[in-house]
Write a protein that binds this DNA or RNA. Structure first.
Length: 555
DNA sequence: TCACCTACCACCTTTGAAAGGT
DNA sequence: AACCTTTCAAAGGTGGTAGGTG
């Protein structure tokens, strides 16, 4: 559902559209597995091609403010919303075509951080990636007209550090850096992924990168949250606020005024910025490789000025990675419309599966955890019509066992259950080319059942500076590029020193309900997205079509 | 000892049903 | 009867904090 209601949000969003705010091509064509028999997105109308879709981050300026300070997102066991919330304005869709919008959050690198001396510093190697989950927009699937009518908000997406989370929240590790991504999938006439012409694109807004924490580390971030989040109004400045602060601290006197804090923070921020700019967070060549194994995108943009960007090399304007592609061999099963009326009860406690096969075999076993909980799928009837389930799957193009029909008949999953859904054979996805895919479980807020898969990132893609493009959209890209090579086990990310690589992420984890969390891979074993230097403008924006034979690239 | 996590708190916004008016 | 507006209580989202954990 579009969180933004009539409230002139649409207009507002439109006014916010700006070249720099559009998504950047993501050199990761193999994140979502979508089967397709043709190399070209289906569609009879010219503007129906998914590459024509443009996405602009809403409240980009606010995001930038946070980004400059080093965005932090609280994660709790019960789940915490993101703030700023992830909202986008989409344009360029075919008004009549149905699309599915979903997001996921992938590790930005393979480091663990600590906030020391008022700045974020690498504190070691990242912990195994959490189970990958997708948050499918509640309105999905919906027509392009619907999506373009107003802002598309993912504000109800919640983050948790509970590895056994049964609510479908996105699971993250504390003190790690992450990058949210937006995926737009074109649903076929039956609203089901899996159609041979399904295409999708991925958008990444680097300013939305953040470090997950269980309690705020940077006071500036705390202040920004308080000042901008309506729910934190109670902590806002003013003398009253100061009094509240003191009250909260059990003191009879103001501890410190917000203004004072603000000034102090400003000064400290300057210091921090300087430090960061100096490379406090930078200089982590692993950036490239780190992206390799994450089910995400090659988060590679970094701005030396940005605390978080130090790991997200971005040499250009607040870019966004925009990545469109079609992938063959992978299917997204989406039965939203058809499933809206279906009960989401626990018809299926969990999907049995062989972790070894689905994860290790299909997904190159990214490092992860075996969640004991997964073996005890949470099930509840308390699901709203707005909530649905989405879970990943893989399927060989040959239809390995699970036919579409069968999938279509598969019982819908309770949104509270999907989280525990494990790659079940029938829903599993396989790549025709043998490219490992990274399936995701998703939080599908619609009463729908979705099976998603995320293929390994293709290795080759071309890109170019947004600056040159002005407005980044797939339309600016040409097809016919890189064929996603089976990155599989190959490349160990060998980041290009000093480069702002946009290596693609390797799908890391695939959770199945009922399967315990367990390491899937050796982080170091993840293929690096070639040696492309992100610094090279030509690699700034990559996108493409997978093996389907159609690849998009800048012209 | 320390870094990190959890549960709880008071305050606030959001939401949606109920009541009332047109 | 249908629709719109207003009211209000419940639900849920905040950051702060004390205490717990490893």
């Amino acid at each position: 559902m579009l969180q933004e209601k009539a409230s002139a949000v649409t207009d507002d969003a439109m006014t916010r559209v700006q070249p720099g705010g559009e998504a950047e091509l993501v050199p990761d064509p193999s994140r979502l597995g979508l089967s397709t028999t043709s190399g070209v997105p289906s569609g009879n109308e010219p503007d129906q091609n998914i590459e024509n879709i443009k996405v602009v981050l809403h409240e980009r300026e606010l995001w930038k403010k946070f980004h400059e300070a080093g965005t932090e997102m609280i994660i709790t066991k019960a789940g915490r919303r993101m703030f700023p919330s992830y909202k986008v304005k989409v344009t360029g869709m075919n008004p009549k075509t149905k699309y599915i919008l979903l997001t996921d959050i992938v590790p930005a690198d393979d480091h663990r951080y600590k906030f020391c001396d008022n700045k974020w510093m690498v504190a070691g190697k990242a912990e195994p990636a959490m189970p990958g989950r997708l948050y499918v927009h509640p309105d999905s699937p919906a027509t392009g007209a619907h999506w373009m009518r107003q802002l598309v908000s993912f504000q109800k997406l919640k983050l948790t550090n509970n590895h056994l989370d049964p609510f479908g929240h996105i699971i993250l590790n504390s003190m790690h850096k992450y990058q949210p991504r937006l995926h737009i999938v074109k649903a076929d006439e039956n609203n089901a992924f899996g159609s041979k012409n399904t295409a999708y694109c991925t958008h990444v807004f680097h300013e939305t990168a953040f470090i997950s924490v269980t309690s705020y580390q940077n006071h500036k971030i705390t202040q920004l949250k308080i000042e901008n989040n309506p729910f934190a109004k109670g902590f806002r400045g003013s003398e009253e606020g100061d009094l509240r602060v003191s009250r909260l601290q059990g003191k009879e006197y103001p501890v410190i005024s917000k203004n004072m804090v603000r000034q102090r923070l400003i000064s400290s921020h300057g210091h921090l910025a300087g430090k960061l700019g100096a490379g406090v967070l930078a200089g982590h060549p692993q950036v490239l490789s780190s992206y390799q194994y994450e089910p995400g995108v090659p988060l590679s943009n970094s701005d030396p000025q940005d605390p978080l960007s130090n790991h997200f090399p971005q040499s250009r304007d607040p870019s966004l990675l925009y990545h469109c592609f079609k992938h063959r061999g992978v299917k997204f099963y989406f039965f939203a419309d058809n499933a809206r009326h279906l009960e989401l009860g626990c018809k299926r406690p969990y999907l049995e599966t062989s972790p070894a096969v689905s994860e290790e075999h299909y997904f190159r076993s990214p490092p992860s955890y075996e969640s004991p909980l997964l073996s005890h799928p949470y099930c509840t009837e308390a699901i709203t019509s707005r909530e649905a389930c989405m879970y990943s799957s893989m399927e060989t193009e040959s239809g390995s066992g699970a036919g579409d029909a069968e999938d279509l008949n598969a019982p819908s999953l309770n949104c509270n259950m999907w989280a525990t859904v494990q790659p079940y054979p029938r829903y599993s996805v396989q790549t025709v080319e043998g490219v490992p895919y990274q399936p995701f479980t998703a939080h599908f807020t619609n009463t729908a059942t979705v099976t998603s898969v995320v293929p390994h990132p293709s290795s080759s893609m071309t890109s170019r500076p947004q600056a040159e493009i002005g407005v980044y959209s797939s339309s600016t890209v040409q097809r016919g590029l890189p064929v996603i090579p089976p990155t599989s086990s190959s490349s160990s990310s060998s980041p290009v020193p000093g480069s702002r690589d946009r290596s693609t992420h390797q799908p890391l984890y695939h959770r199945k309900p009922g399967s315990p969390l367990r390491p899937h891979r050796d982080l170091s074993a993840y293929p690096a997205q070639s040696a492309m230097s992100i610094r090279d403008p030509s690699y700034q924006y990559q996108m493409g079509l997978s093996s389907a034979g159609t690849h998009w690239t800048d012209s």
